[in-house]
Amino acid sequence: MTHIKNNLAAIKLQITQACELANRSIDEVCLLAVSKTKSADLIQQAYDSGQRAFGESYIQEAVEKIQQLTHLNDISWHFIGPIQSNKTRLIAENFSWVHSVDREKIIYRLNEQRSNQDIPLNVCLQVNISDEKAKSGINVNELERYASLIEQAKHLTLRGLMAIPKKNDSSESFHKMAELFTKLKLSHPSIDTLSMGMSGDLTEAIANHSTMVRIGTAIFGEREIAKE
């Protein structure tokens, strides 16, 4: 447990320093511990060290861990991976957040399948900010339409944007995302989340208004082989 506790402390210090450089409050930035491929025991260790928000990408593996950790009633589960339409029910029923919404069909299915819960599902739209053909995400020109679709969905709450910039292109992409985030908030007041930045570029992400950084390896160690 000691190494996870120390790793979390080191990342939180890095976030604090980045916020100071950007003249932002540390309270404006959430650490999302990316726990995909990691065991429930390691998540429990991170939880015991004060971490509460965890990100998962592989739905079957994630649901198994969520079920094992139901005693942690204040944990926040975030789905951050590509969404297959036949897996939306599991996301809607087991997660508090989903960061990777990028299709109309997914919006409709998540809304319908979340209807049996009292609390709406928090949604971030994934933006293909680097315009990569092989990468998931919404085109910048479609953002307003997708944002409006989510706002019309009774069981979803539009919280913001997510992006995974192309390698070696994060600086320009972060700047573009900051502009999109600022602009979209003017017409959609529920938006308060910009999910971007990892261990290698979190300082620059925070300088560009990121409110949630996604950190995995620097907390838990190298990734293991996924179950899906």
Rank of each mutant, 00 (worst) to 15 (best):
M196S: 00
M196G: 01
M196A: 01
M196E: 00
M196R: 04
G197N: 07
G197P: 00
G197D: 08
G197M: 04
G197S: 06
M198S: 03
M198L: 07
M198F: 06
M198W: 12
S199G: 13
S199P: 06
S199R: 14
G200L: 08
G200P: 10
G200S: 12
G200R: 07
D201K: 05
D201W: 07
L202H: 13
L202W: 13
T203F: 01
T203H: 09
T203E: 13
T203V: 01
T203N: 02
E204T: 14
E204G: 04
A205S: 02
A205I: 02
A205G: 02
A205W: 06
I206G: 00
I206N: 03
I206Q: 07
I206E: 03
A207M: 14
N208W: 10
N208V: 01
N208A: 02
N208Y: 09
H209E: 15
H209A: 13
S210G: 05
S210Q: 14
S210F: 10
T211C: 09
T211F: 05
T211R: 11
T211K: 12
M212R: 04
M212C: 00
I215K: 13
G216T: 07
A218D: 15
A218S: 15
A218R: 09
A218H: 12
A218K: 10
A218L: 11
I219Y: 10
F220E: 03
F220L: 06
F220M: 05
F220P: 01
G221H: 10
G221N: 14
E222H: 13
E222N: 14
E222C: 04
E222L: 09
R223Y: 13
R223K: 09
R223P: 06
I225A: 09
I225Y: 08
I225V: 13
A226Q: 14
A226Y: 09
A226D: 13
K227R: 10
K227S: 07
K227A: 06
